[in-house]
Simulated scan of single mutants.
Amino acid sequence: MTDKITIVPCEKGSIVKIVDGINQYNLDKVSALSDMWTPLEYTAKNENGEEIGGVLAGIGYWNGLEINILWVKDDYRKKGIGTYILKYIEDIAKSKGATVAMLDTFDFQAEEFYLKNGYMPIGEIQNFPKGYKRIYFSKRLDF
């Protein structure tokens, strides 16, 4: 069967078809609890209006908060700003019905930060990148 299949780079229409296809498959198995994707994207600014951090996240259709990126500028780290941003996004997500948060990080990035903030490791990839590990975390928001 695979000898008659060709694989080519995606065009925009193909990307939409792939996303729609997996969404339809998923929703045939488990009904959506909310909109397909509710973006939660915020910037933290200092008193001078300078961007010093931010978060790119969203809530998926099963009410899970997916944190893709949480960043704090080097000069502002270890001052509670990351925790402030994290709690802010969790509170908004909870108010919109999110029941769980999920993310990944590397051990050289923010492993201890997420542990300190109540996240539980649920999996990891050893030696990726070489000499480090990628860690997957989750946290219940509905307690």
Rank of each mutant, 00 (worst) to 15 (best):
G131P: 04
D3S: 13
Y88K: 12
Q109V: 00
G131T: 06
K29E: 13
I5A: 07
G118L: 03
F108H: 04
F128P: 02
P39F: 08
I67H: 00
Y119D: 01
A101H: 00
E66S: 10
N127R: 07
P39H: 09
I125W: 08
Q126A: 14
N63M: 05
L56E: 10
I15C: 15
G54M: 04
Q126N: 13
V30W: 09
T2C: 04
T43L: 13
D75I: 10
G60T: 11
I67S: 02
A44P: 03
L33F: 03
K96D: 05
I92K: 15
G60V: 08
K12E: 13
N127Q: 15
Y25M: 09
I89S: 02
M120T: 14
T43E: 11
Q109H: 06
I18D: 10
I89E: 00
N117A: 06
D28Q: 14
F108V: 02
R134K: 15
M36F: 12
T99A: 08
G21C: 07
L40E: 03
R140S: 12
W62F: 08
Y136M: 15
V16D: 15
R134A: 03
D3Y: 08
T105K: 11
N117P: 05
T99R: 13
S31E: 15
W71L: 04
K78A: 07
K78Y: 06
G118P: 01
I135H: 05
S95L: 08
I69N: 12
W37T: 11
M120R: 11
D142L: 04
Y119T: 03
Y136D: 05
Y84K: 15
D104P: 07
P121Y: 00
S138A: 09
